[in-house]
């Protein structure tokens, strides 16, 4: 047997899979550990992490129990994005809304214009002219701090939230979460 075709087959068998191995077909990622970790951006898992941290602080504070009525009416006013990323802060506030609503301690005022019109009309028909005022208001700020040492870059994102008691106009609770990422380049996952 001529050895050349055999050699060709063996070489092809070795090189073909290794070429294939360089390409990664698209897949759905459900495990946080397989999600990309960017150094200078807030990744999808960071929002969940930050929301978890501040929610734990809020629940532990007992501030939600200070409302005279349960569930207390609450509104998110503004979460200022003070980072260098064009992001939607709803990625944080929506998670907080879901968790707080789930706890049964508060109800969120809707920002839907039509819903408000209908509610106003119903109140009018019922002869109720009292405005629907929130007992609590949530506001906050997301900050970014960058630093570097040699080729290692570090970004810290600080998530600050306040729960304001609107009757007394005082901060009933203030919480803060921090996510810090460091490295020379982005990583495909956080499995190490």
């Amino acid at each position: 047997m001529n050895p050349k075709p055999l050699l060709f087959v063996i070489l092809s068998a070795i090189t073909f899979p290794s070429i294939l191995g360089c390409n990664q077909p698209a897949r759905v990622v459900t495990d946080d550990r397989d999600k990309i970790v960017s150094i200078d951006q807030i990744d999808v898992q960071d929002w969940s992490n930050a929301a978890d941290q501040v929610l734990q602080q809020l629940f532990a504070s007992g501030a939600l129990e200070t409302a005279p009525m349960k569930p207390a009416r609450i509104e998110v006013t503004r979460v200022v994005n003070d980072t260098a990323q064009r992001i939607d802060t709803d990625l944080l506030t929506q998670k907080i809304k879901i968790a707080l609503t789930q706890s049964g301690k508060v109800v969120f005022a809707s920002s839907d214009t039509r819903a408000n019109e209908v509610a106003d009309y119903r109140d009018f028909k019922a002869g109720d002219d009292a405005p629907r005022l929130p007992f609590f208001v949530i506001n906050g700020k997301i900050l970014e701090i960058r630093s570097s040492a040699g080729s290692t870059k570090q970004s810290s994102f600080v998530f600050q939230l306040n729960l304001v008691n609107t009757v007394e106009s005082i901060d009933a609770w203030s919480g803060e979460a921090e996510v810090t990422k460091q490295g020379t380049r982005n990583a495909k996952n956080s499995r190490g």
Partner: peptide, 10 residues
């Protein structure tokens, strides 16, 4: 129970 903030932390 569903949680909007569940996931792996490091």
């Amino acid at each position: 129970l569903f949680s909007p903030v569940s996931g792996y932390r490091q």
